[in-house]
Computed example of a mutant assay.
Amino acid sequence: MTPKSFVSALAAADLPSVFNPWRDRCAIHDRRDAAARRRANLERVLVAALDARVETIWIARDLGYRGGRRTGVPLTDEIHLNHAAALMGGIALERATQGPAIAERTAAIVWQVLGRIGQPVMLWNVFPFHPHEEGDPMSNRCHTRAEREATWPFLQALVSMVRPKRIVAIGRDAHLALDGLNIPTTAIRHPSYGGQREFIDGMFDLYGINGREPASPELPLYGAVARSCALA
C-alpha cells in the first residue's frame, strides 16, 4: 500500500458517532476543502516518514477533537502544525479550519518532547478517527472494541508501510490494544492527569537524552482523552 492509497482507504471509512477528518467536514469550524487539506497533510507526513526511514511509531488511543480531528495529523494540534512540518523535513502542512488556531494540551507536551529528541517519528492512534458521544461532536469518548476491530487493518497497513523497529504506546489503553502486534512495544505513561512528568522522563530515557527540562505546569487537557476505559 502507498501513502496515497492508504489515505484514500481512510477517507472511505464511515462509522456512526465518529468524525473521520479525511472524509468529513465540520460545518462550524472547517473550510470548504477541509477534508482534502487533511488528506494532503497526512499523505505528506507519510511520504516524509518513508523517505526518512523512521524507525519508531508513537501510538496513542484516539484522535481528540482539538488535535488530529482538525489537522489530519495525529497528536498534532494547529499550534504545532509548523513544528510537524519542520521535523518531517520542511514539508507543507496547511490548516483546514477557520478562525483562531486551537491548542491541545497533549499535543503541546508531545511536541515539547519531540523538539528535544529532534528525530522524525510517525504519530498515530490505535483508533484512527475521532469517536464522540452521540449528538455531541465536540466531545471525546473511548472507542469500542468493535470500532477497533473494524479499523485494525489500517494500523496493520501503516506498520507494513513504515516497517518500524519499535512502537511506543502512549498510555495504558494504547499499550493493551497493541498487544496483537508482533513488534517490540514500549509503554510510556500518557501525559494526562498528572502523568506529564512521567511521560517526559520516560521518553527522554528511551531516547537517551541526558538532563531534564522543567515540565510545564499541569493544566486541564484541552480535549485530550485522559481517563482509562475498558474497550468493550
Score class of each variant (00 low, 15 high):
112 Q>N: 07
50 L>C: 06
69 R>A: 15
121 V>E: 06
57 I>P: 05
132 H>V: 03
57 I>N: 05
88 M>L: 15
45 V>L: 09
133 E>G: 07
44 R>Q: 12
68 G>Y: 05
54 V>D: 07
75 L>H: 09
132 H>S: 05
53 R>E: 15
94 E>D: 15
129 F>T: 03
52 A>T: 06
101 A>H: 02
147 E>V: 04
78 E>I: 10
45 V>T: 10
71 T>K: 05
105 R>K: 12
48 A>V: 05
83 H>Y: 13
83 H>K: 14
64 G>E: 08
96 A>S: 14
48 A>L: 11
140 N>S: 15
45 V>D: 12
106 T>E: 07
140 N>H: 07
135 G>E: 01
102 I>C: 02
142 C>R: 07
136 D>P: 02
106 T>L: 10
46 L>M: 13
116 R>K: 13
101 A>I: 04
58 W>Q: 07
50 L>N: 00
143 H>N: 01
127 F>D: 00
105 R>I: 14
59 I>M: 15
125 N>V: 05
108 A>R: 14
83 H>G: 13
131 P>H: 03
145 R>C: 13
72 G>I: 09
95 R>W: 01
145 R>T: 09
45 V>P: 01
64 G>Y: 02
62 D>T: 15
70 R>T: 04
89 G>Q: 11
90 G>M: 08
67 G>S: 15
109 I>Y: 07
96 A>Q: 06
116 R>N: 10
123 L>G: 03
133 E>F: 01
98 Q>E: 12
122 M>S: 02
67 G>E: 13
85 A>N: 05
100 P>L: 13
138 M>G: 04
81 L>R: 09
79 I>P: 14
51 D>I: 00
101 A>Y: 02
60 A>G: 10
91 I>H: 08
97 T>G: 07
57 I>S: 04
91 I>R: 08
104 E>A: 14
121 V>T: 11
129 F>H: 02
81 L>Y: 06
96 A>R: 01
100 P>W: 12
85 A>L: 13
63 L>H: 01
83 H>Q: 13
72 G>N: 04
93 L>Y: 02
94 E>V: 10
137 P>W: 01
111 W>M: 09
115 G>V: 00
112 Q>A: 14
86 A>C: 08
55 E>M: 04
112 Q>P: 03
119 Q>G: 02
77 D>F: 00
46 L>T: 09
84 A>Y: 06
104 E>T: 01
148 R>C: 13
113 V>F: 00
128 P>V: 05
130 H>D: 08
87 L>Y: 07
83 H>S: 14
86 A>G: 07
132 H>K: 01
105 R>E: 09
129 F>M: 10
87 L>V: 13
131 P>S: 15
55 E>Q: 15
109 I>W: 00
99 G>L: 09
74 P>I: 05
49 A>G: 11
113 V>R: 05
121 V>N: 00
139 S>F: 00
121 V>R: 08
